[in-house]
Nucleic acid binder design. Structure first.
Lengths: 227, 227
DNA sequence: CGGTAAGTGTTACTTGAGGTAACGGTTACT
DNA sequence: AGTAACCGTTACCTCAAGTAACACTTACCG
């Protein structure tokens, strides 16, 4: 009887990668279906788009919100691929801000349907469930908060404001981007510039009020002006 | 036969006010139902809460989204009653900003359930229909844009940024408020102060870059420093 | 090679919430 | 008396989400 414990049956492992791949396939199908039939596609539509019938879909996703969650995660991935580098890049502070903002705007500009589906989406059924958008915003805000907090501490300033600051910045860019995506009354460069200006001024004001003089054209390095 | 044209039958007018009142009653019932049963109440629940059966509800609202729209408008009303005065009030610029921000925060603090229902709400069925939240945000942003634009023009500055600015500010306050409402890790006063500080610094920076020196403790009056 | 654990897929069903039909009663203007 | 507006009900329809039941394929396991 001891040999029954000799590890997991290989038959169980055989599919590990396959399932992932299949899910990804359905996520793509959903995105395609959304692009084709608008944001209120049903499961049947998605299944059809994937050339398959409903129950197959349900073998890979427990329910509708699970599928949509996966779509959301895919979107997060797209977003993070672009924003990650921008967030960690260093260089002149003002340019860096603009880089982050523009990274965000470029992603939503390139995937407007996906974006709208995910954020304004008819996320039918999401009582309190996983809200991808909220999570994304949190993820970005948290990253931002850490960066801000580090700088604030480095300048010996009160870091308690880092979190609200981060969430404020995220909301600011998101909402402005949203507005811009609907009525494209200005170029992306222009908007990035406006937003970066606001943010830079806010940061600069904060630093000034603590007696720190920063140069937008230089990397923001803690110079320890305060002893 | 001429007398049949003598104007609308009084029987048709008799109810004018009544219908409005009845709608309001159902809106209240919805809010109560939401408070009691969470944000995903159904029409049946709402009807029950109002002590009535479904078809009655449908005599006053064409469908679910119509009802929710009305709820949204009620919320807008609550919000505007508080924000309107704050928006037009004058006084020291910095205090004024804080007043506006705090007005918003106070409303969502007092009606968290309603707020969540309206903004995160399971607005099942809203393909592209009236999105109350978006409209509210637009309303506020537009008001703000007008105020900002007027000031910018008064200071002989480029007013093209007024709209993105306005939307950015709205998103900023909304998102920060949202975050705060969920995990209340700081007092409202504190958050209002942080946000007002950010906004003030951004404005101040903008003015400085145009050569205008503003005093946060004084009303913002166009001094026409530029000739 | 028989057994079995995974996956492939189908059609046909159940369920639940949104929404409607059809009916009857009440009030007060004409 | 007639009728235009409301009050209200129960019983139904509809449609999309989700499930049951059934049948076939692959490849590991002993």
């Amino acid at each position: 009887m001891a040999r029954t414990v000799k590890g997991p049956d290989a038959r169980r492992e055989r599919w590990k990668g396959h399932r992932e791949q299949r899910r990804a396939e359905f996520v793509e199908a959903t995105i395609a279906a959304v692009a084709r039939k608008g944001p209120d596609v049903g499961m049947e539509d998605v299944a059809a788009e994937a050339g398959v019938s409903k129950p197959v879909l349900y073998r890979h996703f427990t329910d509708k919100s699970d599928l949509y969650l996966a779509v959301g995660q895919k979107a997060t991935e797209l977003l993070m691929d672009r924003m990650g580098p921008a967030l960690v890049a260093d260089g002149p502070i003002r340019a860096r801000i603009e880089g982050i903002v523009d990274a965000y705007l470029s992603v939503i500009e390139e995937n407007p349907n996906l974006y709208r589906f995910v954020v304004k989406g008819s996320f039918v059924d999401r009582p309190v469930e996983k809200d991808v958008v909220a999570e994304d915003k949190n993820l970005i805000a948290t990253t931002l908060a850490r960066i801000l907090g580090d700088y604030l501490r480095a300048f010996d300033m009160d870091s308690g404001g880092a979190e609200p600051w981060a969430h404020a910045l995220v909301g600011m860019v998101q909402n402005a981007g949203d507005w811009w995506l609907d009525r494209q009354t200005m170029s992306r460069e222009n908007l990035s510039d406006y937003l970066a200006t606001i943010i830079w001024h806010a940061i600069d004001g904060l630093l000034r009020s603590a007696g720190v003089q920063a140069d937008p054209a230089k990397p923001l390095t803690p110079l320890r002006l305060v002893d």
